[in-house]
Nucleic acid binder design. Structure first.
Lengths: 177, 177, 177, 177
DNA sequence: GATGAATGAGCTTTCATTCAT
DNA sequence: AATGAATGAAAGCTCATTCAT
């Protein structure tokens, strides 16, 4: 899994199964003992990375806090994770646009993001997004975050201020002024 | 070009040159009379689609209008184009994540988006994003739009209201409340 | 023909018909107005170059001279031609190993080399090669010359002495000590 | 390797990797398990054949003999090898003019021909070629041999006498009368 | 006669997957 | 379970040749 992350991060979705196996220090054929197809591997990788991402974001969540405070916490964790694990980030970015990732995998990820969806639901209450499909708000938040991460990775100097700026923008999206 | 759009939209970046040629009703080899490599073709397609997108957005722009009014116009045009040309939209989405698209192509696209960048610059004046890198605001706007389009395509019923909801959110991002 | 010489000299037998046409400043298709196939072109080129080579060697031949004197003259002319026309030399060298050159072309060349064959016949009279097939003696002389030319082209500094050394060796082959 | 020899001998350097694989009785792709590229294969083939040729020539060399005797032995072995292995001979002839054969491969071959170079050095001592570059003498000997082989293959009837005649000529080249 | 776009067979190379060991 | 050689179906690209203009 870690090997696949590195391989996909550096070579993209075109990373050959051979190169993944090599990166993992196992033989060509061994890979197929554990994964029926390359697609299976990619799906498992996707779910695994996304789940890790979701869980990491929730670590240390101020349980009693206001939605905004909780959201900020999640946001900050998220950015930290992305900056600290550029390979995982890059791999996820590649996998997101792969046709090989099934609806089932996306569904699994959604479940992992359940807590975040709840938080989002609470955050938007009474706000301008209260009547939009929740999935839309979730995707929107997600894509703002991804864009921010991309920029932060490209210009690490402004990381702090940009992260904050982007969070405020996100909050304006979800909860209005 | 149209054939490539369809092929890339339906088969992704992995669309074979053979399938593109077939789609275009020309022979395998003819494709390489016009494009030196597959990458060249993809780059030209990318620039062409993005440029079309940018230009379409500006058609009928209320020249004397307020930034918000202009922005709404652009936003609406954009959504219309995307909904009316799902193939082009899908193709662009694929091309955006391709390693084959060169920096030069991105630069060309940036130029085509110059007018939009200006508009964005005027829109954010005095607002919370005034000190962020313009490129960040541009990408952010873009990714919100893409996400919206994805959702609209998936659930065309809510198109109208969602488009408006998303525009308001975007405006909150750019210009604050 | 000149264009083909340059193209074959620089790109080898793999020179595309397109590149030959371009070198000649005519269109792709025009080439096939004059040569039915690429093989035809190569054969004509081969015969043309070889014939030129043979004729050049005979220019200024001391008609009344001894065989050795005549042979030396031919030899010297030959070397001069080769050094002065490296492209032609290289092209011929490539063509010599091509499967496309027909027996008929070789025959034509042999005819062009008739005078040289005569000279060789007189030169070997009474010597150790008098009973060998004349074609063998001819090929032998030829290959010694080619080898010498190759070396001379590679190390032009020793051209003079090497040319003379090689001629003496050739004479020993043909006529003995 | 044997398959490649046959394929190159009969089809020239243009022999497709597919045809080589077929000749070897393995699949298309298997060939690339053992050779990274076609060029690699050709280089290995070249070195292998040339080395075999050099070693075969030295088998049974009369160690204590005069240079001339040793040279005659080498010469005879060489001719025998060539006549007995026409495919290998033809393949080598093709490979010699290939642009794919690297300087490194030629160097490897030179090393294999070290013993022959020594012999040649001793043979020419005190003779007319004593001051020529050794490499020239080597190439010259080689090309005389190749020419002889070509003729012998074409007219096997005169093999014996021609071989002897050619050797005497070679000796005259190297060592004078 | 000259053109050059069009052709499609053919090339080398890659790679997910299989399977005997 | 682990291996890695073997596979063969693609893939991108080239090029001699044709032919309508």
């Amino acid at each position: 899994m870690a090997a696949a992350t590195r391989a996909v991060a550096s070579q993209g979705l075109g990373a050959s199964t051979a190169s993944i196996a090599k990166e993992a220090g196992v033989s060509n054929g061994s890979l197929f003992v554990y994964f029926d197809t390359k697609a299976t591997l990619l799906n498992e990788l996707f779910v695994s990375l996304k789940t890790e991402m979701a869980q990491t974001s929730l670590i240390g969540l101020p349980v009693e806090g206001e939605p905004r405070e909780q959201m900020l916490h999640v946001w900050t964790q998220w950015m930290r994770w992305a900056v600290a694990s550029p390979d995982k980030r890059r791999a996820v970015a590649q996998l997101l646009v792969s046709d090989d990732i099934t609806a089932a995998s996306h569904e699994l990820v959604n479940i992992a993001f359940g807590a975040m969806a709840d938080l989002l639901e609470r955050s938007r209450a009474g706000g301008p997004m209260q009547n939009a499909p929740l999935s839309f708000v979730l995707t929107l938040t997600n894509s703002i975050a991804e864009t921010t991460i991309d920029t932060v990775i490209r210009e690490p100097a402004d990381a702090e201020s940009l992260t904050r700026l982007a969070f405020d923008a996100t909050w304006r999206v979800i909860a209005g002024a």
